Structure formats: C-alpha cells, structure tokens
Computed example of a mutant assay.
Amino acid sequence: MSSRRTLIAAAALCAAAATTGLPAAPATAWPGPSVTVAADGSGDFTSVQAAVDAVPPGNPGPFTIKLRPGVYRGQVIIPADKPHIVLRGQGADPSQVVITDNRANGTPKPEGGTWGTSGSASVTISGDDFSARNLTFANDFDEAAHPEITSKQAVAVLTRADRLVFDNVRFLGNQDTLYVNSPDATTVSRVYFRKCYVEGDVDFIFGRATAVFDRCEIRSLNRGSATNNGYVTAASTSIANPFGFLIVGSKLTSDAPAGTVFLGRPWHPSNDPNAIAQTVIRDSTIGAHIGAAPWTDFGTWSWRDARYGEFHNRGPGATVTADRPQLTTDQAAGATIDAYLTGWHPQR
C-alpha cells in the first residue's frame, strides 16, 4: 500500500475508533498510523504543519510523524483537538532534524500589530499526550540584525497541554526559548523533559506549567556582560499548584563569567498576585556562572516570596549561602519526579 493510501486508511481507522470507542488498529509497524515528512519531497509531506493538518481530529492513539533529516522552517501549530501526536526525528542525533522559525514578540504582523510573545513561538502545542524525540526546536530570530525591534522575546516552543514528553530534544533560542504553560491559570499541565538540551539567556524556561527536567543540560548563553548574563527560569506557578519546575540530575552550564547568571526570578503575568513561582533544583551540577545569590527580584516582586529551593547540588556554582534556600530531607522526599507528575508515569 502506498504512503498516501496508508494515510487515508489510517485516518479512516482513527475516525472509526472515535465513533465506536474502539482503539485504532495499527496501519504500519509503528504503534498506530504514521506519515513521513521530508524536505526533499521523498516523503508524504514536505512541511511539518501539513502532516499535522492531516491528523484526524480526536484521534484516540499515537499518530507518528516521522521527520527525515533537514531544516523545516515555518510555524507549527498543534491544536487541542489533535492529541497523541508523536514527532520523531529520523536523524542520527537531534541536530539533524530542525524545526525553526524567526519571529519575535515585536516582529510586525502582515495584517498589522506585532506577534507578541505567545505568537512568536515556532511551535505551539495544545494537544494532550504529545511527544517528541530526537529532534531540535529553535527560534533563530537574530536580535543583532533587528535593532528596530525592542521586544525581543522569541519562543522556540510553547506548550499548553497535559502529559507531554520530550526525549533527547534540543531547544534553541535566546530570550524566552521554552514557554511551558497551560490552557488557563486554574488548569495544571504536566511536561516531562528527558535527556534534553535547553539554551537561552533571559527567562529562557518560563511559564506556569508543572515541568520536570530529568538529566538535562540547561545552558545559559553569554550575553557579553560583566555583571548580568540573564536568568535561567521565570516560573509563574499558580499559588494553588504546589509543583512548578523541577530540575533533577541535570547540568547547568555556561561560558559566561563567574557569578553573572541567576537561577531565576518570579514572573507575575499581568501582575497576577496569585502567580507564585515554584522551582526546585536538586542533585544537579551547577557551573561557576551561577553566583552566591542566585535568585533575584522581578520588578517589584521579591524572590523571597517565591517558592525556591535546592537540595544536594554540586559544582562551583552550588555553594550554599544564606541567599540559597535549601530543602530539608523531609521536604526533598516530597520533591521528586513522581510527586511533580502526580500519577502520570512517562517512560524514563
């Protein structure tokens, strides 16, 4: 059966399953239906968005989009009615498949106005149970080439869904690289990052989702400052949610000068007083770029009112000081991957 006919058959199976309540039968050797994207035209589609558009709304099980090596430029939007999408890079390593775009918050829109931070995202994921493996998400907006744009937030990935898995994935950008969010302030959305690489400079991991970074490298870029080379996190966790960001068994790296990068600052979107940042970094190696007072205020919002903690970190940037809240052993027992993911157990 040709790839196109396979796709049609897969869509029919998904539609039948949606109406009968039965799981879709696999159309290929992959778990569930699959299609291939290839920039050179050798697959079913040449763009990632075209493949996403072909996934039937409400599909009940994994629908795999296989991405052959190449650079795929253009925004990708995965809507809420398309859960269970799997993006799987087919290269030897994550660098061989790149999904990217280059717009920033202040980039003008064709119809007028600007894109805003959320609108700048190269990839927006609103469908639950999404996963991505062995590929790169990037926003390659060139700050230096656009001095006329003052709002330079440029998101590589924006998540707005629950039970998302990123496995061996790279996230590349500068300011606001990775925006982990939820549909609204009262909804908890969980995201699991396994052996990923995230880079940026200002607030490059931010949002109100519950996000676990397990055995990841989190790299702060050098902005060339002798005093302030940015902030790793800017959580905006709802006060009703005890679990914001957990960084565990990971490496925080940089070639920025010693003591010039902050672990985080508390983001209060629209000055929301109920957005109380929650971030724990534990059992991780922290480079010398992190200083002795690694948490800092965000405007008028004091970091001391946020929920920050560390536990059993090591490395030249992990020196325990009075400005670094440390978890007790009992508190650390409740700050685990399982606790943050609350009943959801993605493969580790």
Rank of each mutant, 00 (worst) to 15 (best):
L135Q: 11
T64K: 11
S151N: 10
A145L: 06
L164V: 08
T46I: 15
N102W: 00
A154Y: 12
P60C: 13
H84A: 01
I125W: 04
L135Y: 00
L164C: 08
D162P: 15
K109A: 02
Q96L: 03
G112N: 05
S42M: 13
G91M: 14
T159H: 12
G89F: 01
F137E: 03
S120N: 13
A161F: 02
I85R: 14
N102L: 00
G58W: 14
A104Q: 15
V157S: 10
Y72P: 14
T150C: 02
T100A: 12
S120F: 05
R133I: 05
R103K: 06
S122M: 02
D167T: 09
H146C: 10
I85Q: 03
I125M: 04
T107K: 04
P94V: 14
A154K: 14
E143V: 13
R103V: 15
D93E: 09
A144E: 15
S131C: 13
D129K: 14
D167I: 09
A80Q: 05
R73Q: 07
A38W: 08
L164G: 11
G119R: 07
A145M: 03
D129C: 02
A161Q: 07
V76R: 06
R73K: 10
G61I: 15
K82W: 01
T64P: 01
D93G: 13
V37E: 01
P56K: 09
S122R: 12
L135F: 02
P94I: 07
A51S: 08
E143W: 15
L87V: 05
A156T: 09
